[in-house]
Each structure stands twice: as C-alpha cells, then as structure tokens.
Amino acid sequence: MKVMVCLKQVPHQDARLDVNADGTWIQEDNIKFEINSYDTYAVEEALRLKDAGDAEVVVVSIGPDRVTAALRTALGMGADRAVHVNDAAAQGADALGIAKILAAVAKEEGADVIFAGLMAEDDNASAIPPMVAELLGFPSATGVLATDFSADTVTVERELEGGALEVVELPKPCLIAIQSGANQVRYASLKGIMQAKKKPVDVKTLADLGLAESASAAQNKTTVNKVYVPAKGDTAEILSGSTDEVVGQLVTKIKELGLL
C-alpha cells in the first residue's frame, strides 16, 4: 500500500513574528522553521501503518530549499521517500494551487491513502486536504483522532464539538486529515537520522508535474493583501509592580469577587 503524507514547514511556534517589508506576510529571514505540528501527527499515523505491515510511506512538501530539513526529519522518523516540489512559481500559490500540486503528486505516486494535518499553524486555514481529495475524487474525513484499517476500507473517528466523535467509513483510496493529539509522535532516532541521509528526495518543478500553467501563484483566486497585528479591543487592565505588589492587587480582586 502506498501512503502519502502532506507536510508543511512553518515558522517555529516560538519564532518572532514581524510583518515583512511589503506587509503581506511575516519576515522569514533568520527565524527557525519546523514541521507543522498537525502534520507530525499525520506522519506518525502513516508510520504506524508501515510498522503494522507493508505500507510504503512517501512524504511530500512544497516550498523553497529550507523545506529539505522538514523532509529529512520525516525520513529520520521512518518515512521511506520524499518528494520536494521546489519551484519559485509555486511560492505564494493559494490553497487551491497547492492542492492541485499535491493532487498531481498523489496521482503520480498512485497513493492509496493520503494523510495530512487538519490545519497549518501559520495560516490556520484547514483548506488544502479536502481540496486534494475533491480533485482526486477521493472520499475524505477531517479532524480525525483514530483510524482503523481493513483490506479495502478505513474507519475513522472525527472529532466534533463537546466531546462527540463521528465514525465514518471510507473506501480506499481516500484522504484523512488528522487532528492534533491523535497519537504520541515519535522522535527521529540518531540511527533514523543517519539512515535518512541515504533515503531519496525527488525534487520536482511545476513543469515536471505538468502544472506550469495551472497551479502557480499567478493563477491565485485568493490574495493576501495585508498582514498586521490586530488592533487591541477592550484589553485587560494590566497590573504592574513587583511580584508582591501584583499578587496583592490580585488577592484584592479575588476578595471583591467573594471568593476569599
């Protein structure tokens, strides 16, 4: 079984976020990047399938040279191969453009199951995975906390609100967008990292995928015009002073609430 995992490399969760010079994204120079946390759960879910049987796990990412580090990490965790779509024309492509690229890779790979994270920590969009499924004509499920594979189908549990779960059965081929917390993600072992250096990373351009005219940023139907720090609304009364002074003020407030 061929299992594909879609990976996005995003700014590290503790990275400093400064708006860039033209005000349309953040300043990416000199900040740390990491695999989108949701996607790490997707990689883990795929590796568990591999551990259980005969799955080949291919990780796919789109982005500039720095993305290689994310792919190497996933290979170090145990993925078999990587595909890196590295093409300046794809930089800034909207969700549908990225979905078209991922769908083309999935077709080329003949993926039976596609895993992705529910959303990305940077743009918080949760847009791409169901788009990929639609483009391929695959059934899909999002926000998945548990998977149970049989020969021809996957039964998944989707997280709804208030602790409810929706159980859905998807025939293969299918796409599953994993919710964070679905599993305990393994770390890349030292041995894994050493082995990863020998694993293949196929670098592709949009032209290689036959998408030069259809999936580049020039085709965007959605454009980010401006990124900014939100105006503060009714913000909190900020207590200031030494620790003792601040704590004293808080205790007074708690007394006023009748809780002391």
């Binding site: 700014p11 953040i26 918080n124 454009t223 401006k226 900014y228 720090v229 939100p230």
Partner: peptide
Amino acid sequence: RIFNGKLDAEVST
C-alpha cells in the same frame, strides 16, 4: 486570523 490569533490578514478573492 492567522498564527493562532497573533496576526490578522486581509484577503481578497
């Protein structure tokens, strides 16, 4: 909202 509420984005379609 993007970056978990730390920034806002204006988007046009």
